[in-house]
Design a binder for these strands. Structure first.
Lengths: 145, 145
DNA sequence: TTCCATGCAAAGGGTTTGCACTCTC
DNA sequence: GAGAGTGCAAACCCTTTGCATGGAA
């Protein structure tokens, strides 16, 4: 499921193009702009944020293309969709195994490498099911009051 | 934050009425119908499911009232809002500390008591933030193929 | 009478879809 | 000239809001 981008720390713009090709995505300027926003370094952004940033590079990107491309990148496993709270979907371009710290006051997300947290327990999965993944969201707040 | 319902296993219809009163919610037939669906036993239901079930008891419940009541129960801490995957918000009437197993194929949610899972790690929270809660979703699938 | 709760319908936000145009091969 | 990708606008789903009605204290 994870691609070779999995271990990346950062990527050049050319690297982004190659990565798209390697995943069978034919290149367009719109797709490159969007992919650059997401894949040059690990980020957590909403669809709206991605679209706005991409439009700074390339103004003629429509909303439809923005969403199409996000879904395409998601299907190819290059980004992951996270639901943090109702109505707030963020796209995560860190596809290594990791968890999240979410500050509800600032909206800031911080990655926690999977190795930093251990989950142990006596829980057995229901019969006949296969474990896919474990999501952990550590919710914090930074309110003074 | 958790109310006395926290430890409940099940509740009578009368118990639901008392619980609402105890939380300063004035009673109406609509609210009682909705609260019964959710609070008689722990369930995981979407807003739509709650509304439909409540309307079987009491047909004259409008969509607006359904959502108003869900939000009211949520504010009072009698139910919790969970976001499992994009566009799928479920209301959870088990307010004890617990985690979830989610089967993406069947949509079925299973509770895991907090005591059954241990989370340990070396991760430090960012400076100045306060831990609120830890959400764990164990994603499984039951596809044969 | 003064609220509060309700119902209806309309509005709202975020995402998807339909369709015609453009580009590429 | 067939297929893919795009832009625009409309449609869509889910939730919230505005407003007038109706009931409770």
């Amino acid at each position: 499921m994870l691609k070779d981008i999995g271990k990346m720390k950062s990527l050049t713009r050319d690297g982004v193009a190659e990565l798209l090709r390697a995943n069978g995505i034919s290149l367009t300027l719109q797709r490159l702009a969007i992919a650059q926003i997401l894949l040059v370094r690990p980020v957590h952004l909403t669809a709206e944020q991605v679209l706005k940033k991409a439009q700074k590079i390339m103004p003629e990107i429509s909303r439809a293309t923005g969403y199409n491309t996000l879904n395409l990148l998601k299907e190819k496993g290059l980004i992951r969709e996270l639901v943090i709270e109702p109505g707030r979907i963020v796209y995560d371009s860190n596809t290594t195994h990791h968890y999240h710290i979410y500050d509800a006051d600032t909206g800031k997300m911080t990655d926690v490498p999977a190795g930093d947290i251990k989950v142990t327990g006596t829980t057995e999965l229901p019969a006949g099911v296969v474990l896919e993944e474990v999501d952990i969201i550590i919710r914090v707040n930074s309110r003074s009051g």
